[in-house]
Design a protein around this nucleic acid. Sequence first.
DNA 1: ATTCCTTTTTGTATAAATTACAATTAGTTT
DNA 2: AAACTAATTGTAATTTATACAAAAAGGAAT
Lengths: 247, 247
Amino acid sequence: MKSSQKKNKNRLEQEDIYSIPIDAFFKSAFSVDCVIFGYHEKELKVLLIQRGTDPYENYWALPGDLVYPHEDLEHAAQRVLRDLTSLPDISMRQVHAFGKVGRHPLGRVITIAYTALVEHTEINPLPSNWAKQTKWHSVKKLPRLAFDHEEILKDCHQSIKRLIISEPLWVNVLPEKFTITQLQEIFETVLDKKFDKGNFRKKINGLKFLKPLKESQKNVSHRPSTLFNFDSKIFEKYKEKGFVFEF
Amino acid sequence: MKSSQKKNKNRLEQEDIYSIPIDAFFKSAFSVDCVIFGYHEKELKVLLIQRGTDPYENYWALPGDLVYPHEDLEHAAQRVLRDLTSLPDISMRQVHAFGKVGRHPLGRVITIAYTALVEHTEINPLPSNWAKQTKWHSVKKLPRLAFDHEEILKDCHQSIKRLIISEPLWVNVLPEKFTITQLQEIFETVLDKKFDKGNFRKKINGLKFLKPLKESQKNVSHRPSTLFNFDSKIFEKYKEKGFVFEF
DNA sequence: ATTCCTTTTTGTATAAATTACAATTAGTTT
DNA sequence: AAACTAATTGTAATTTATACAAAAAGGAAT
């Protein structure tokens, strides 16, 4: 196959296709894998399962599943998450497709990685048929993972760092009404980097889709903070116009 | 299926899986689609084929193909491009996986979109078995496309706009030695936006991986420009350190 | 009720980056 | 030698970023 007759190479490969029956192409499967980052009190964790079946029995792995024949990718990702956490309607982002030939021992399986950021104390991970246990792991101390899941996790970790500066990934983390400090702490944790209080606040005040409410914090033993609101309508309008906000 | 007994919902779907034989999952296929943008003299085009077979016979479409059972995704993308243009070794980027259930009339096919930017006069598109003709189309005036290719193309168009400010997509466009003006024109065309000559130059001079050479332009009827060089080694080093350059 | 403590919020002075625009330079062409 | 063109340098004005400090608003302690 390495013989290089530049001119004929194309034609050769072209004909190869016809020597493979079309059915052969429909022997692959695809899966989704979910990289769910959990934030709580300045700590970033990631949800892993311990596999209960072969291959990679007992290994820790990303929650994922084969996609149903008549199921959309996004739906499959939501299903995996829901089965594991009973949390519905989390906004997830597709990150990347991983498809190396040998990545799955049972056959040709490509997987589409989805990621999200949630408040992890709201979630009680459930064991499931394919998982012995489900556990939050600190992103700073991860076990060895099944398949190519270490690569996927790393890629998604990079991704949320890029995404969070221009997408409201934190809507799944913060309550309806939140303080600027709460938002700042999420940024600091995800980006692993400190921001100046005053300067962070100035940025926020420049963003029209983060609106101060009339209300403020109650029962804190210091000056209470104004509560803020995320206005997704306004955000979408800015996004349509190609506006990108950055931290 | 819409009956909502919140508590049992998970378990129900869980059991559904076992009523579907595992073989049923291995009846899907995946393909790659290549969105090849061609730059030449301040014009941005995209390479389309006219399909020679059903489904969507005669429609214009993105060049793409099913992935061989033992072929990596990147390799498939390179193959499609090579078969069509006889251009090897173009650096392509994966953009997104498209997997809506009904997107392909012949079965469940998800496709992974890859994109690249090339100098399109260097390329003579070849017709192939599955394409009646291959043609560069201006991105500003596109025909109706087969499948969900309009969505894919739009997504990739957005992508190169984001990518080009932090990745050297233009290495496939520029010659080994190039002028700053040449680089600026690519940016202006892709981003559809003008830059100030002097200010653009200052940015470039701040980037260590774009190095001025001793040489300069020959035979131009004005002050000749210094030629520059892209040093990928230095670029990669910066990238590892998480450095992102922006225009 | 006054003082203390904590965190929010505002302010401000400095440095750095961006922008718009003009002037100079180095070649070719007339 | 003057005119022409685009490259290159320069610079003033503006905006944005950064670091740091002071003021404000609550509860808790004396």
